[in-house]
Design a binder for these strands. Structure first.
Lengths: 154, 154
DNA sequence: TTAATTTGGTTTCTTAAAGCAACCCTATTA
DNA sequence: TAATAGGGTTGCTTTAAGAAACCAAATTAA
């Protein structure tokens, strides 16, 4: 595939995609969030080839999205657990899931039903918000970055 | 690459990744959000091969993330514009960008500085929230889906 | 009014990654 | 003592990504 690397990109989305932007990594993180921890469970749930899973898990560990911890008392059993960095992808995954549910709903109409553990109430759609918690669309925001770039360039 | 397709997956994240889960598509959407509309501008800004850009743009158009509209008065000039579905990826992109800024900051420390156009105030970090607008971590939520699945399976 | 350039693509070729299947080693279980 | 499960690795095949050349319509420059 000769895929281009974004490591040195000055765009943090590009750098983020470098870590979780391939087809499998974000799904692995998703399943980890759903509670999957074992190699075989990832493999079965995702239907991913073992060598690819190996590769992705070790990259995610390298990038500190997952931790590999020994499990089982005395053997070569491991668990792959989310780090704080990995758990911090929660809004990304939920936003993506909500987008998928909205625009490409499952045939059976099944939606993500995440609930506040404390109250049992469904969560809200993930939105971009201003300081007052008001949702903002892309038309409601401006990219200060661009303004700065223009200023410093001009 | 023989990449697996997720079209028929019952997971909407997988289906979403089928549309914007490759290395380029989400970056194209990102740049479209920043205002890019023309083929050549995408090509130069992303450093993407033209054939790949062609392919991605047409897939994004097929998936109704972008619209291809004639631009210029009388010629083969086109613009690729976000549809509502595409604009709806805004929270995903912003969440990913914030994650990247937090965990893989740019060497120069540059962060995304999105501001509320109305007030000039920076936006908030994108979070998953309960009905009261309180941010929730993954530990604060439960997946009702799983409970239902267990119930209906058991 | 002809030549050069821009835009948006297509084609060909090379390289590298994804997927499959077979194999391997260590522990545990039967 | 053999079978099985977990976690990999190795080799091979298929397919997508990337580079570069080419192309045609429209526009601009000379």
């Amino acid at each position: 595939m000769a895929r281009k690397r974004f490591d040195d990109s000055n765009c943090s989305v590009a750098r983020a995609l470098n870590e979780v932007g391939d087809w499998w990594s974000l799904l692995i993180v998703l399943h980890a969030m759903y509670g999957t921890r074992r190699f075989v469970d990832f493999q079965q749930q995702l239907g991913i080839a073992k060598n690819i899973l190996c590769d992705r898990l070790s990259k995610l560990v390298d990038n500190e999205v997952l931790r590999k911890v020994e499990a089982g008392e005395h053997g070569s059993r491991f668990e792959y657990r989310l780090t704080e960095k990995g758990r911090d992808l929660f809004p990304v995954v939920v936003a993506l899931r909500q987008w998928g549910d909205k625009w490409n709903p499952a045939p059976d109409g099944e939606q993500l039903d995440l609930r506040d553990r404390a109250t049992g109430q469904p969560i809200q759609p993930v939105t971009v918000q201003n300081r007052d918690g008001e949702p903002l669309t892309i038309r409601d925001v401006l990219v200060a970055e661009d303004l700065q770039a223009k200023k410093s360039a001009g």
